[in-house]
């Protein structure tokens, strides 16, 4: 049930942003279309879609969502400064390699968010996920030990995502 309510809210939000108006008729049409699409998804197209059903809506989880977004955007800016430094330096200061890290997250959507965040943070790119392991291409390898690489690369996002998802 929580899953479908989340899908409905997201669809209605996209409708509102695309139309960019507050007229009552447009909003009512949007509500009807969002409800229709949600029912269609829930009943006919994919019955087992439970991507959002492990979200938590407690105040602590919402606070952690905002902290996660702030950390993510700071890391995005840092990663671009890092990329500019590596590209424009005449000697190309790279030391690449593929390392393995272990995650504790269970939820599918949380893992997708973690992989996307890893890809957009300085010097790392997710290549493959197998079971609990993420294989990460690291442009400047500092440690090939699994534990230490996990601490260095993914702990900063994982501790917030653990609070948001089960």
């Amino acid at each position: 049930m929580k899953n479908y309510i989340t899908i409905f809210v997201i669809l209605f939000f996209v409708w509102f942003l695309l139309n960019n108006t507050l007229q009552v008729e447009v909003l009512i049409v949007g509500l009807i279309v969002s409800a229709l699409v949600t029912t269609l998804v829930g009943v006919m197209l994919c019955v087992k879609c439970n991507v959002f059903s492990d979200l938590k809506y407690t105040p602590k989880a919402i606070l952690n969502t905002f902290i996660f977004l702030a950390v993510f955007f700071i890391e995005l800016v840092k990663s671009n400064i890092d990329v500019a430094r590596r590209v424009l330096a005449p000697t190309r200061p790279i030391n690449p390699g593929i390392v393995e890290v272990k995650t504790k997250l269970k939820s599918k959507f949380a893992r997708m968010l973690l992989a996307n965040s890893i890809t957009l943070t300085p010097g790392t790119l997710t290549i493959e996920t197998r079971g609990d392991s993420f294989f990460i291409h690291w442009i400047d390898v500092k440690d090939i030990n699994v534990e230490k690489a996990s601490n260095e690369l993914i702990r900063k996002f994982e501790k917030y995502l653990e609070e948001i998802y089960d």
Partner: peptide
């Protein structure tokens, strides 16, 4: 220049 390839 690759140092390690754990996936392989």
């Amino acid at each position: 220049r690759t140092v390690v390839d754990k996936l392989k």
